[in-house]
Amino acid sequence: MKTDKFFVLIFMFLASILVLFLTIPLIKLFVSVGIVNIFTTIQEKEVYDSIFLTLRSAFYAVVFVCVTGIPLAYLIARYDFWGKSILESVLDIPVMVPHTAAGIALLIAFSNGYFDFIDTVTGIVSAMMFLSAPFLINGAKEGFKKVDVKYEYVARTLGASRMSAFFSIALPNARNDIINGALMMWSRGLGEFGAVVIIAYHPMVAPVLIYDRFNNYGLKYSAPVAASMILVSVCLFLAVRYVNNRLR
């Protein structure tokens, strides 16, 4: 139909503006740096350590929130309790606050002598976790909401305990949303700069290293680090998604 074609063309035109806006900077970055330069940069110890620290810290944050946030998400999805909507709003606050403000808040809360917090991996993980946990919690919550409670009911009539029904039915069937939430959280953690830089300038995570090199040496020295970080992140995301799809 003619009108359909016209409609689709308009939408394709509008969508392509955004797609180009999102992809051109990345393509330009990779083209200007060059693949050889990216691999040379990754092999520099400072860059390698920084990228590895970033990946490691974001991963620790995801693991901690998996252990604590998935039960929280399950409780929110399954039960109605007093203050539930307030709790859900509170959990979304980190997404809204400026990241530097979150860093200051964390500094005030935890740099009290009990934790080795400033300029430590613990501090970096905390900053990443504070700002990115809602992605995993909300993902898991939506995932559990999609799993009808009747599945767990039937599992229990078949002999499974509450905990067994959770692990054998609720968790596997919410898995895709949880993994998507975890990936979102991890990617957000990898890119975290504002809060991390307040808490730990050293050891340098990749975003801080990029900023540091840009500030001290300019674009020529920071661009290869940025390209390296993006390349590693994209490869890891694709790998995780591939494994998840194979397991489905």
Binding site: D148, K150, Y151, Y153, V154, A155, R156, T157, L158, G159, A160, S161, I169, N173
Partner: peptide, 16 residues
């Protein structure tokens, strides 16, 4: 429920 030994078949079957 797991101790009662009562089976349950829902209207929409609820297969895992």
């Amino acid at each position: 429920p797991e101790k009662r030994n009562f089976g349950f078949v829902y209207q929409d079957f609820v297969l895992f």
